[in-house]
Design a protein around this nucleic acid. Structure first.
Lengths: 127, 127
DNA sequence: GTTATAGTTCTACGACGTGTAGAAAACTTC
DNA sequence: GAAGTTTTCTACACGTCGTAGAACTATAAC
């Protein structure tokens, strides 16, 4: 239940990028604009119906990635956790299913850039 | 194209566990046996048709996770890379899609056990 | 307060992935 | 070359995702 579709991901990207909770309409507009500017890779740039965005938001809510304020009339949606948190969680999920965690970590570290290795050293330093 | 179904995963687990290349029939038998013993969580323990296993193997081959020797008549199948390699690759895939890689790594490290942190320090030490 | 307007939920459908396997084709073996 | 074994083709059910119209509900305007 972890993986996202293309549109779902596009919506999450917008929610993660924006600091404020957004309405379905705002998101629809952003989806329409976001793409034209930068070559429309992936999914954005289409004029979607608002219901489409709402459906996606509902599904994301059911998946626990998004929450909404039901009080205000245009409901406002926001990501439950930051993208970094979510991604880190995903990584743990992937790692978690392995019986040979240490071996996996070894391979993982093996193909990390030097700069990131440095970051990791620092992070591990003060633990 | 990264995620696996339940049966696909069960097959990969067998291929990763075994050191030799296996035939579809062998795998079918193993799938039937593997589960009864340990409570049948997940997928195994069913008497599958060999064609089912073959279909799954073909799909795994198309995904690049499995390769087969077509020379011998019962084709022999084996995993392309070790489970550790594959899992590490998956982790990189998850991480790769993030613009804020360092932040993700920070979160990731934050929730790693002390033992694993130690392992990571060692691994990062001799780079 | 009743109507127009904006927003939300319900329902639906097509595409695609996955579990499942029979029918048909290809290959081995005697 | 007939019988058995193995592989490929084809197919279907079910779930997820993109997509959106129809129907319902709340808000705004008057």
């Amino acid at each position: 239940m972890a993986s996202l579709g293309e549109l779902e991901r596009a919506v999450m990207d917008l929610l993660w990028a924006g600091q404020e909770a957004a309405t379905a309409n705002t998101l629809r507009d952003q989806l329409a604009r976001t793409s034209a500017a930068q070559g429309g890779q992936g999914h954005e740039g289409k004029e979607l119906a608002v219901t489409t965005v709402l459906t996606v938001l509902s599904r994301l809510e059911k998946k626990g990635l998004v929450e909404r304020e039901r009080g205000t009339r245009p409901h406002r949606y926001q990501a439950v956790s930051s993208r970094a948190d979510h991604t880190a969680e995903l990584m743990h999920e992937v790692l978690g299913s392995a019986p040979d965690r240490e071996a996996v970590l070894a391979r993982f570290i093996g193909s990390v850039s030097e700069g990131e290795a440095e970051t990791l050293r620092k992070l591990l330093g003060h633990l």
